[in-house]
Nucleic acid binder design. Structure first.
Length: 771
RNA sequence: UCCCCCCUGGUGUAAGGGCAACACAGCGGUCUUUGGAACCGCUAAUCCACGUUCGAAUCGUGGGGGGGGAACCA
């Protein structure tokens, strides 16, 4: 077991977990963490959903919180009870428990309606009577603001009356909608008076005919979260632009809880598709047999293929969480599956394409019972079964070659090979059929190698086999990746042409050792040298066994062959050569008032402010004012401008300058302290941080926290020696030429002094003493 | 065209001013009654430019590339 130190830095949390940890730290939400998995019951869950399920449940679990399962059933036209059943089953199968927290959006319809009336009374929503097309036209475009429709100016009373009559069913579909009154000129189109309710005289699978108006996602979802007191509402990236609307809703309705939405990039997988539409097309077009076809990336498909929930959860961990578009290597999923199965399933022997072998020196009619362990020595599990050995056996056709390539370890004329758990045999003769094909092999066995023992002799190859008389015929379905290419969507409309014609190869007449007849039907196996398999849960009768291949074994032998055929890959440099050399160096000048332009001129020409900085601080009056007030303190304009542009925004974050609790006076003073050597730039940032959060005068903060810079070479020298002594190994590396470590040492000195050391002096001292 | 988000080895994720890390894949080796597993080693990355800084993958500006957004879908 490695210690964390030997393992290097401990891996950091993903950005979602970081936010949750910070919120907990800050005591938000009363220390509670509540997440939710909110599927719409209009399709089957796939592996992308599965990673989202894992994320939501695990984030809650890791923080002592709970995760709700909530069906987002606000669209009666597409949703169905059978999907809630399959989704429920899938989430449970994945191993997650929502306890009592099973919810339906449709249970909140009454409350949502109430909040809508509240909005109307507040003058924040109105009934729109324009047609769908008219609404769209009036919404404007990305470059032009929208314009109000006549409905927008209706009175509260009229809106209330109309909305109640909408609910009462007085109007046909599409005649009216309820809209939020937000901002028709917003650059975010979603804020241009979004539709909250539409009329649909449709039967809902849960509420029946109780409602004829249904809420839209942007209205329903935040309310559901708020009602359930969800703290962290995790969704996918395409909802990023919805967040301001989400916030608007939770801030404008009278509920006690204030959830926040965070978006992550859905996990995509190589060699498959995930969209509901494409998956449906595969099923309906007969490209696969069903939603639970083992080639489908659906949870049901993976389950039927023999994948374990543990493997899927491991895969989710391996894939991680991020905000980048991604397509995860299918090898990662396969690794997770093998890694799980390797540790837990018994090995058995099965021959896919049998080749008859007669052991000529083994007596006819005799049966030898050999004991074979179920697990290899490196898997800490017990158990064995008996395999019968007879005069006639079958081996894999692939395991014999008349003219083997070099490095081939299996059977060939005159060669020896070990039969797993049995004997070493030698091939003496090849018997042909009429067409010249190989019909049968005549071999002799070495009685002394019983159980496969070969003392004093090396037999490189070991192959699997079954007794001809005792083995059981079975069907084996070899599943492979569904698409030939990693990203089928890249082919556009032709995506189905990239389907892998060999994604399913059915083998009839395979032969498996008899012991499996005694096993429970849901037993998973490794067929030695072939892969992991289990019986198809639907098509497998006890008489006619059907096995699905869950995943192949890693095969470094095949890979060697493939690698040889592989074309040399293009050097990466090629891609990089053609960079846009012609990018203009002068930044385009945004429009600004004549007054601001005059200031920019003066700052840059007369005060020595940098070009870029001068341009930035004259974009807005407030910034220029801050700058002017600050130079009055005697700070050097150039340095001051640098701090305003490069340091202040970092601390300020989302806040505007006017919201900060300090002004030019304080900022100027801070820069003066920096310039006269009182403060190191590192400590200066600390001071600025405090000024930003709490306000206060720089001098006072420096005094109180004792942040005066240490520039005295003697004092620093002592610290430098200490740091070198404490990091002797690194010092040696540095002296060996790893000079990049200088930053590390400076960092150590800075840390030791709480940022008070003069880094320039420290750096010089380090350089000379490390020489 | 306007707004928002993203860009670290082949892939996915860390490091969020101070040692570019982990996993998968790949390559080589040890071991092996599975050409499996395990173990050891190696290869391989911060989109570009300029700036701020003692020090930039990290902060700033600009550019490039990718994704999302104007449903009475979610």
């Amino acid at each position: 077991m490695k210690t964390p130190a030997e393992n290097g830095p401990t891996p950091g949390l993903d950005f979602i977990r970081t936010i949750v940890a910070e919120d907990l730290e800050a005591g938000l939400h009363g220390g509670r963490v509540v997440t939710r998995f909110p599927p719409e019951p209009n399709g089957y869950l796939h592996i992308g959903h599965a990673t989202a399920v894992c994320l939501n449940f695990n984030v809650a679990l890791e923080n002592g919180g709970v995760c709700h399962l909530r069906f987002d059933d606000t669209n009666p036209e597409t949703e169905d009870i059978r999907y809630v059943r399959s989704i429920t089953e899938d989430v449970r199968w994945l191993g997650f428990d929502w306890g009592e927290h099973l919810y339906y959006a449709s249970d909140c319809f009454e409350q949502m309606y109430g909040f809508a009336e509240h909005l109307i009374r507040e003058g924040k929503a109105y009934v729109e009577s324009a047609s769908e097309d008219e609404i769209r036209d009036a919404r404007g475009s990305v470059t032009e603001p929208g314009s109000p429709t006549p409905s927008r100016s209706r009175s509260v009373e009229e809106n209330l009356d109309l909305f109640r009559r909408m609910r009462a069913g007085e109007f046909p579909d599409g005649t009216h909608v309820l809209r939020a009154k937000i901002d028709l000129a917003s650059p975010n189109m979603l804020l241009r008076d979004p539709v909250l309710y539409r009329i649909r005289h449709a039967h809902h699978y849960r509420t029946g005919d109780e409602w004829c108006i249904y809420p839209l996602y942007d209205w329903a979802h935040p309310i559901e979260d708020a009602i359930e007191c969800v703290t962290h509402s995790i969704c996918t990236l395409e909802f990023e632009t919805h967040r301001p609307l989400y916030n608007w809703v939770v801030e404008n309705i009278p509920v006690g809880c204030r959830p926040h939405q965070y978006e992550f990039a859905r996990r995509n997988l190589e060699h498959t598709v995930m969209s509901k539409r494409k998956l449906l097309e595969l099923v309906e077009g007969g490209y696969v047999d069903s939603w639970d076809d083992p080639r489908m990336p659906t949870v049901a498909g993976l389950r039927r293929r023999g994948v374990t929930p543990e493997a899927i959860r491991t895969f989710a961990d391996l894939a991680g969480v991020g905000k980048t578009e991604n397509r995860i290597d299918i090898g990662k999923l396969e690794f997770a599956i093998r890694d799980d199965l390797n540790q837990r399933v018994p090995r058995v022997l099965c021959v896919l394409r049998p080749l008859k072998v007669v052991i000529t020196n083994f007596p006819e009619g005799e049966v030898e019972h050999l004991e074979a362990p179920y697990y290899p020595r490196d898997v800490p599990r017990e158990g064995s079964r008996v395999v019968p050995f007879t005069r006639t056996i079958y081996i894999e056709r692939e395991d014999f070659q008349e003219d083997p390539p070099s490095g081939y370890h299996r059977l060939a004329p005159g060669n020896e090979v070990r039969l797993r758990y049995a004997y070493v045999i030698r091939c003496d003769e090849v018997i042909r059929d009429e067409r010249g094909g190989i019909a049968e092999l005549r071999c002799t066995y070495d009685r002394a190698t019983r159980g496969g023992k070969t003392e004093g002799r090396t037999v490189k190859g070991t192959i699997h086999w079954v007794s001809a008389d005792h083995s059981v015929e079975c069907e084996v379905r070899l599943y492979d990746r569904l698409f030939l290419v990693p990203d089928p969507e890249e082919a556009g409309e032709a995506w189905k042409e990239t389907l892998n014609p060999e994604s399913l190869v059915v083998i009839h007449g395979a032969r498996i050792e008899p012991s499996v007849r005694e096993d429970p039907p849901n037993t998973r196996y490794q067929f030695e040298r072939l892969g992991y398999f289990w019986r198809d849960p639907i098509d497998s009768e006890s008489e006619a066994m059907v096995f699905n291949r869950t995943v192949m074994l890693r095969d470094t032998w095949v890979k060697q062959g493939e690698a040889a055929e592989e074309l040399p890959t293009k050097p990466k440099a090629e891609v990089r050569v053609e960079r846009h050399a012609e990018t203009s160096t002068s930044a385009p000048e945004p429009e600004r008032s004549a007054a601001l332009e005059a200031r920019r001129e003066r700052y840059v020409r007369e005060l020595g402010v940098g070009d870029a900085e001068g341009e930035i601080i004259t974009r807005e009056d407030a910034t220029a004012e801050l700058f002017e007030t600050a130079i009055a303190t005697g700070a050097t304009p150039r340095t001051l401008a640098n701090w305003i542009v490069h340091e202040v925004p970092r601390e300020a974050g989302e806040r505007a300058l006017s919201e900060l609790p300090f002004g030019g006076q304080e900022l100027g003073r801070l820069v003066v302290l920096l310039e006269d050597g009182t403060l190191s730039s590192s400590a200066g940032r600390d001071v600025l941080a405090e000024m930003t959060t709490r306000g206060g005068a720089p001098d006072e903060i420096v005094e109180r926290r004792g942040l005066h810079q240490i520039s005295d070479p003697e004092k620093l020298g002592l610290l430098v020696d200490e740091v070198i002594a404490q990091n002797a190994k690194k010092a040696a590396e540095y002296r060996d030429g790893r000079t990049g470590l200088l930053g590390f040492f400076v960092g150590q000195v800075m840390r030791k002094t709480g940022g008070r050391a003069n880094p320039e002096v420290a750096s010089k001292l380090l350089e000379s003493r490390l020489r």
